[in-house]
Amino acid sequence: MTAARTFTKRATHQPDWPDSCELTRARQQLASAPPLTSPKDIRVLKRALAEVAAGKAYVLQGGDCAEPFGIAARRGARAKDAVLGALSKQIRHAPVVVIGRLAGQFAKPRSEPTEVIDGRTMPTFRGLAVNGPEPVAVQRIPNARRMITAYHTARAVLAELDNGMWVSHEALLLDYEEPLIRTEGSTRYLASTHLPWIGERTRDVDGAHVEFLTNIANPVACKIGPAATPEEVVALCARLDPQREPGRLTLISRLGTHDVRTLLPPLVRAVRAAGHPVVWMCDPMHANTRITSTGLKTRHLQDITGEAVAFHETLRELGQWPGGLHLELAGEDVTECVGANVPDENALVRRYTSLCDPRLNNEQASVVVESLGRLGDDLAHRGLGRG
């Protein structure tokens, strides 16, 4: 256990902590805190993901865009556990590995460091582990003590789930993640989660986030956006999966409903030619975000379903197993995305409660999963699954 920084590469999308002493104290507390996950459980998940890579299982991953703190996090975890369980029963073509986007989704990369609210310029909200969402300048100042609250919230969420669900989050905030590395023998595990991933904004093969994931034994994942080239993705695979180990690396494509059929095939062919047994998953949310005329972020269900279907059809045509679906969902009757029981953008204001990006409500999530039912049956019929 160490509170000292060990990564050597440039780290992007990190807060400019104003109090270095407070940051040091927070890192020291995290370094001495009990682990949130165990090496044994992490190894079990890696074996489960190896089954997915072999076409014998399917991943359903979902949860908050940005988690709340306190009792809202525990209540939300129960709701998401229930909806993910219900959604998993809609998937009939393979055993399902359910992974919650929970117990750590407290930091967000943002496109701009500042935003203007009511004519005032202030730091952008970066997730509750960094600053507050309230449009008040003092609340937007990064505060390292928030990382301790994030840790205790994550621990409470895992207790609420009774350690019965795999959890995952974006390993963005390195000052939170690094002190939570624990060692078993000579093997380093990230004890903040079972499955950490890095995003489209932090997947630089020469950056600190890729370096960080190379030095832990967890299964890891990486989001792949429309700007990714086959050469970049193969280079990422070489760094993150040098031993070509089934279950080690998951690639989560987020290409957009209009581009997935064009952009995905060269990436899949390049990774296959390089011999990496990755799990291919689809995030149909993030490349389909729109801004309404009133400035509200939203996503349209037809775009989300369209990308999910196109992803599965494209992988099928390439003779590859489409390994899973990654959704942002609320587990509640929110009105943040348009479609199903949210008829148009005017209905969004009824119950828009997300701390950051728009999430699917339960009915909408069910529509997305059900749209893949016929495809799943066809995959099983063609032998692309169940070994």
Rank of each mutant, 00 (worst) to 15 (best):
A4L: 13
R5E: 08
T8Y: 02
K9S: 15
D16G: 03
P18L: 11
D19Y: 15
R25E: 11
R27M: 00
Q29Y: 05
S32I: 08
L45Y: 08
L45I: 12
V52G: 02
V52K: 01
V59L: 07
D64A: 13
A82L: 14
A86W: 05
K89N: 08
I91S: 00
R92C: 11
A94V: 12
V97T: 07
I99V: 15
L102N: 05
I117T: 07
A129M: 14
I148R: 08
A156H: 06
A156W: 05
G164C: 12
V167A: 06
L174Q: 06
P179W: 02
L180V: 10
T183R: 09
G185C: 07
R188T: 05
Y189I: 14
I198P: 07
T202K: 09
A208M: 06
V210I: 02
I224A: 02
A227F: 11
D241K: 13
P246S: 00
T250S: 15
T250H: 03
R254Q: 03
R261W: 08
P284S: 04
A287E: 07
T294G: 02
L296K: 07
H300R: 15
D303K: 09
G306T: 09
A308S: 08
A310H: 14
L315T: 11
Q320M: 09
E328C: 03
D333I: 11
V334T: 15
V338Q: 03
N346E: 14
L348I: 11
C356G: 04
H381F: 15
R382K: 15
G383W: 13
G383I: 15
R386M: 13
